[in-house]
């Protein structure tokens, strides 16, 4: 097998990012269609901060919402996929550096992933 180079990693990262954006935006768009179909006549107001509806605020709520074709649950799933895209990109860089045996940058990629995970875990606290 040919040795993996920086250029290969760049190509792979480019594809990961492109696919992530295309997939997540499609999901957001589909969810938007359902949301429009079911709620377009209702009144919307965002002037006061009241958080988000319960069914889009937990993984189980979003999952149930997708199964019952609730537009906002599908949109939120698309948004989570979009947020995951750059994180998956870091994961692929990590694998790339690992295959190149670049231990310093394997460690740096791990550190960046760790910070994002820490941020996710402390989201409710702070």
């Amino acid at each position: 097998m040919k040795k993996i180079s920086d250029l290969d990693i760049q190509q792979i990262i480019g594809w990961v990012l492109r696919l992530g954006v295309i997939i997540s935006m499609s999901v957001v768009f589909i969810g938007g269609c359902f949301y429009w179909y079911r709620h377009s006549g209702e009144t919307a107001s965002y002037s006061k901060f009241v958080g988000v509806p319960d069914f889009v605020h937990s993984p189980s709520g979003i999952w149930n919402g997708i199964l019952t074709l609730r537009g906002r649950a599908i949109i939120q799933a698309g948004i989570i996929l979009l947020i995951a895209t750059p994180v998956i990109r870091v994961l692929f860089s990590l694998i790339g550096f690992l295959l190149e045996k670049d231990w310093l940058y394997t460690a740096i990629s791990l550190l960046v992933l760790g910070i994002i995970i820490a941020s996710a875990l402390t989201g409710h606290a702070g």
């Binding site: 938007g32 939120q76 948004i79 947020i83 994002i116 941020s119 989201g123």
Partner: peptide, 24 residues
Amino acid sequence: GVTAAASAVVYLQRGYIDPGLSMP
């Protein structure tokens, strides 16, 4: 993208990311 993802995970849990508004 990575920078924004690090804060988006916090905002997501705090209910700052509203799907109805974020979609358009």
